[in-house]
Write a protein that binds this DNA or RNA. Sequence first.
DNA 1: ATACAAATGCAATACATTTGCATTTGCAAG
DNA 2: CTTGCAAATGCAAATGTATTGCATTTGTAT
Lengths: 142, 142
Amino acid sequence: MEREIQVSDLLRQHDLKKTPARLTVLRLLSQSGFAVGFAELEQALGELADKVTLYRLLKSFEDKGIIHKTIDPEGFPKYALCQDDCGTHRHVDRHIHFSCTQCKKTSCLPHVSIPTVILPEGYLAEAFQFNISGICKSCALA
Amino acid sequence: MEREIQVSDLLRQHDLKKTPARLTVLRLLSQSGFAVGFAELEQALGELADKVTLYRLLKSFEDKGIIHKTIDPEGFPKYALCQDDCGTHRHVDRHIHFSCTQCKKTSCLPHVSIPTVILPEGYLAEAFQFNISGICKSCALA
DNA sequence: ATACAAATGCAATACATTTGCATTTGCAAG
DNA sequence: CTTGCAAATGCAAATGTATTGCATTTGTAT
Ligand SMILES: [Mn+2]
Ligand SMILES: [Mn+2]
Ligand SMILES: [Zn+2]
Ligand SMILES: [Zn+2]
């Protein structure tokens, strides 16, 4: 019940009511080692909640700084729990994403150091979005 | 007429017929220093061509390796001429993109060197997509 | 000038996401 | 344990974006 308590707390901390749909989504995201696509979340919900509800809760989670969205190289949005100190309408997800061209899974890579990009004179960097695609560890071994 | 000849050649080289819509799009892309959004291209075409035609010609340009598409931080696709040696179904657009949060313009930065990202053991990088957002040169000065 | 494949226009379709509104539900106060 | 109410949800409709089918037009090689 360790994890259950964690996701409940996450909701309470952000003034969001504890509903079955929200708990299911947060549980899946906290257990999966990957960024999860809409379809997979929808399937996990099953009859538990409508597709519209999923859209809405994802939106509110994102607004609250609980999850972040990343677009994989094929254009599909993937969702993952924020690991950094994100807050309401303030995201600081400074990490690289890796998408496997074979298994199509997207991973957050918070331990990979962010390279410094030297921009031309006059440009001011504020945020970035780095996606690397290739073969993931699992697929490489198989 | 310098540029006109260039875009005509571009079409001929890729076995694409020289049509008003295609010429207009290529001229705009070759003149604009930025990656251009669908809406702007559509406006440039005016009555000259249908929206569907624009979708189709962009698709064929991309397939042929004439243009590449990049998704800006707000999710809008932007199109730009390929600068590297891309070919039919073979893109090698290895450059960084910069999107200004103020003027919303996206630029290709072919002269910015690509940083080396050290991935965890077992991962094999094949391609990347780096987008930096911030304030562009023009907006910084203004 | 002719012929034919390629390109286009228009309508219909497909699909993803958003919105409006009536109903239900979580939760806090009494 | 009830009650009250804002928050959350379900369902239908609306929106927005991109694709497809098919009849017609157009570019270009001969
Ligand atoms: Mn991430
Ligand atoms: Mn580019
Ligand atoms: Zn994989
Ligand atoms: Zn700018």
